[in-house]
Design a protein around this nucleic acid. Sequence first.
RNA 1: GCCCCAGUGGCGCAGAGGUAGCGCAGCCGAUUUGUAAUCGGCCGGUCGGAGGUUCGAAUCCCCCCUGGGGCUCCA
Length: 579
Amino acid sequence: MARRIADPALIDLRKRIRHSAAHVLAESVLKLFPQAKPTIGPPTDDGFYYDFDVDRPFTPEDIEKIAELMRVSIKADHRFEESEIERSEARKRVQDNPYKLEIIEGIPEGEKITFARHGDFVDLCRGGHVRSTGEIAAFKLLSTAGAYWRGDERNRMLQRIYGTAWESGEELEKFLLQVAEAEKRDHRRLGTELQLYFFDPSAPASPFFLPKGATVYNGLIDYMRQLYRKYGYQEVITPQILNVDLWKRSGHYDNYRENMFVVEIDERQFGVKPMNCPAHALMYASTLRSYRDLPIRFADFGRLHRYERSGVTHGLTRVRSFSQDDAHIFCAPDQIGSEISGFISLLREAYQAFRFEELRVALSLRPEKRVGGEEIWDRAEVALEKVLEDSGLSFDKMPGEGAFYGPKIDFFVPDAIGREWQLGTVQLDFSLSERFDLEFVAEDGSRQRPVVIHRAALGSLERFIGVLVEHTAGALPLWLAPVQAVVIPITDRNVSYADEVRAKLAEAGLRAEVDRSNERMNAKIRAAQLQKVPYMLVIGDREQAAGNVAVRRRAGGDLGARPVDKVVRMLSDEVANRS
RNA sequence: GCCCCAGUGGCGCAGAGGUAGCGCAGCCGAUUUGUAAUCGGCCGGUCGGAGGUUCGAAUCCCCCCUGGGGCUCCA
């Protein structure tokens, strides 16, 4: 996905256009709905919105009328005028609007309070407009949505109108086209088209992976297992359903229960696991551990279930049933730095294999409410920051955003329409070993607490596949492609030779199919291209006679005829290199 | 959870009170073809589910289910 151009002057202009458009939107809404109370209307990355307190939601017809009034206001080319107002006077002006009043109360004493006027519309506003409404060259209202005041669902629900605005009609068109293109690579759509996975009301927000999707899924797991061998992890298998007593001990019952599926059997309650950590803690505690055994790294691809609220689930990227490339590291406090560092190496190696380059890294530091002493937090935060600095990754520090049980680093990757999803994470945990009374015998014979590190590189495999499908528009790299090559016989005479070619590919561990449909070569190529198959191996009489195949690549077209054995080797090498 | 929108053959869509249609896919037949769609025929839908209004409902109303857009990028 294309990065947005970073011309600061243009970005500023767009921001002002959009902010101004929000004012014009509010003006128009108030003309149609005089009792509506405007609240906030900021510019966004590629548009703007404005939230209103109104008696009823806006209908599509309302939106059309509003847009029409906006056009009138823009045509009139009203000038924007900003003026500073005395605080008490400002309060008076907005006395009928509790939202604006609240905003004013939030402005520190001594800071200026300004209003902006254009035409006969006045709004409390920090500033940042274009000179006059005529400079809003192109806009479009996009959608409506309910939105809680201050984003808090305990507050009243407001009605939001989203729009976009640009410095020219062409730019608007470009943007709308880009949105349409992005929709084409929506993983929900591609999943159906490529027969990877689907959803069914019988299991809301829980994907069904078809054979092709399962191939991708298992491909990811195979790859992670390979990395686990390299980085010293041991894979384990743990139960799906565990007695609530365990979840009480781990703290999940108190802190995470509303996200858990709980079942009752034999008058006892069991929780379906939302996380693997308690099971891994039991495994750690199943025998006496020596400092010589540390670090211990338990990896687990176990299926997790979390009850996500119905309004928040989304395709594969937010589901209720999933598994992660999850692992827990039990180590001595002085091993924290090297463990985090090792994990980041693993993560970067993996992301490189998927060409994930747009990575945002966030380091979340101690929150108000937390467990563990100051020394361990100091030590851990310093260790995390140092590892990040040494890694050369740029990152944002997020004070107060850490979990109550420890600081963490999260790795975010954007999807096709720029929404960011958290994939990788590494979290220190100072709580788990206390709750499960985990120990190891130190060099001096004393009993010590290990530190627990939760970590996942790809994160939820479901979410990862969703993001990967959008990044590649379904054109997965050869090593992950469910069908790596389609053998295309040109005539019926070539079918049995095509079968031989397929068998040779299969023998080398490659996933290949023969297209024996009663179609012309062109149609078979088109079908394979649409299915994003990396290689098409075309076979006519000429190839058959010479023991060749004509190689066509998904991207790059015809490579010409080559001996079968050479092609098998070429593909095998490409798979081995994950290139 | 809350607000809005949507659910029609496997997939993509049309139909907006008079009893369901198109394209693709699938199946059958003809064709045997050199790098993104050969032609013809056939099959396929209790219109998400359950109620109601009506002489009559895919179309209108109510409830439920599922999906989608959103729910602090803060004047």
